[in-house]
Design a binder for these strands. Structure first.
Length: 421
RNA sequence: GGAGGGGUCGCAUAGCCAGGUCUAGUGCGGCCGCCUGCUAAGCGGCUCUAGGGGGUUAUUCCUCUAGCGCGGGUUCAAAUCCCGCCCCCUCCGCCA
């Protein structure tokens, strides 16, 4: 959510941001009109309330019964006005809120302009794709051949877009999660074990609702929503808090499964384990001071890169252009790994500086020092990493001519073996 | 699932039964000042959040509104009375 005062005072910033994102600017005009009307009515309402407070106080003091009754009558009249105005202001508030929710974050000045994902910019490519002496197989053939990846039983248990792993592949996946967490912890992140369901107001505060309602699983009886990413509970941790400025930045990491309803047509995008209704992810998250967020985004990207480097898989870093930037993000880098079997770059991480967009909505603030006014923190999030796609990269990059898989050096401590066959 | 107790300005508490100087008191903590070789003590003052209006527009300032777990209701007026919900504690029952 953007700052209404900023939009009020500098509407061109918002119009410009929408233009860069290839979006209509009409919502800004509607918002400005709403805001002006709301403030006018609010002033009116508050004047009446001040009047009522004064009269009520006087009634309490008056000894004369007749005069008391006269004043009571006057307040009753005022109360009719107040009721009307309260209803009106309430409606305007709701509309304003809704209008604010519809406006995306303002892209940073250094985000390249572009109309869509075709204009994202590859910032760097690290590691050359491995040369194979044989034709590398896609993971969805290799896995089942090894007997450790079972699509049929996934469907049997939970329907389309689910799968089952077993044996060494299941262990490799668990090892990967554990290694990633330990890797981040060693670089200064604190691990969290989180609920995989959250209440609706946490979803709202994290910005998943109302926008992504149709993509979320939830229990209608209990106000419990399955998390689509650990970013949601990690944001929720400090909602309505006023953090101590000295403690910032806070670097958090957590493993959770992620649940997303995405009704895609069957095809290239849903083949294999690339896009399930449930997937595992290790998430990274930062709360920091506004002046530090740009640098912290670079730090986070470096942290993700160090994981990919240690896993020894070729990757590239892409900066998203204005037209492809996520709704809440001011600046985003995607990290993609090379998958030689399916022959494509796979997004395993997306690291974003959200600035105060999420903090304002979730009311997450900090105080620079005792007595100072609370300010909104900046938040950043990034995957570190998405597990299924990283698994695809591991399986396809580490496959050997005999159909077995080598285990990356970094993970052997966890898997207690160096090959899967 | 049943019975009882509780949720108040950072922390601890008072206020609620008997609605109105509650502008929510007190203690602790914290900040500023005074006093004092130093420290401590003592004395005085200050202490939350959000929003609106006015004045300057760089900050300071003046004023109003709202907030006592959340949401409704009664009333001229609600921390206080009524209804619903949430959370915490104790005990009983059930259960992995």
């Amino acid at each position: 959510m953007n700052d209404i005062r900023l939009i009020r005072e500098k509407p061109d910033l918002m119009r410009d941001a929408l233009g860069k994102r290839q979006m209509e600017t009409a919502p800004v005009e509607r918002l400005l009109a709403l805001d002006e009307e709301r403030r006018a009515k609010l002033a009116e309402l508050e004047t009446f309330r001040a009047q009522r407070n004064a009269y009520s106080k006087e009634i309490g003091r008056l000894a004369d019964a007749a005069r008391r009754e006269t004043l009571k009558d006057q307040v009753r009249v005022i109360n009719i006005q107040i009721d009307e105005l309260e209803t009106l202001v309430g409606e305007l508030d709701a509309q304003l809120q809704e209008a604010l929710y519809e406006l995306p974050n303002i892209p940073d000045a250094d985000v390249p302009f572009g109309k869509d994902d075709s204009e994202n910019v590859v910032v760097k490519t690290v590691g050359a794709p491995r040369e194979f002496a044989f034709t590398p197989q896609p993971h969805y053939e290799l896995g089942p051949k090894l007997g450790y990846l079972d699509f049929e039983r996934g469907v049997k248990l939970a329907g389309t877009r689910f799968y089952v792993t077993n044996g060494l592949l299941a262990k490799l996946q668990r090892s990967l999660i554990q290694w990633l967490l330990d890797h981040h912890i060693a670089r200064g992140y604190r691990e969290f074990g989180l609920p995989f369901m959250v209440k609706e107001d946490i979803m709202l505060g994290a910005g998943q609702l109302p926008k992504f309602r149709e993509n979320l699983y939830h229990d209608v009886e209990r106000d419990a929503w399955f998390v689509p990413t650990a970013e949601v509970p990690l944001t929720g941790l400090h909602m309505d808090d006023i953090l101590d400025g000295d403690q910032l930045p806070l670097n958090y990491t957590a493993y959770t499964p992620c649940f997303r309803k995405e009704n895609l047509a069957a095809g290239k995008d849903t083949r294999g384990i690339k896009r399930g209704f449930q997937f595992d992810k290790v998430e990274m998250y930062k709360y920091c001071k506004p002046e530090d967020s740009e640098n912290e985004l670079n730090n986070m990207v470096a942290d993700i890169e160090s994981a990919l480097t240690a896993l020894e898989i070729p990757y590239r870093v892409k900066q998203l252009c204005t037209g492809d930037l996520g709704f809440g993000s001011a600046k985003t880098f995607d990290l993609e790994v090379w998958a030689p079997g399916i022959n494509e770059w796979l997004e395993v991480s997306s690291a974003s500086n959200v600035r105060d967009f999420q903090a304002r909505r979730g009311n997450i603030r900090f105080r620079r020092e005792r007595g100072a006014k609370p300010e909104f923190v900046h938040t950043l999030n990034g995957s570190g990493l998405g597990i299924p796609r990283t698994m695809i990269a591991l399986i396809e990059n580490y496959q050997q001519a005999d159909g077995s898989l080598a285990i990356p050096q970094a993970l052997r401590e966890y898997t207690k073996s160096d090959v899967i066959r």
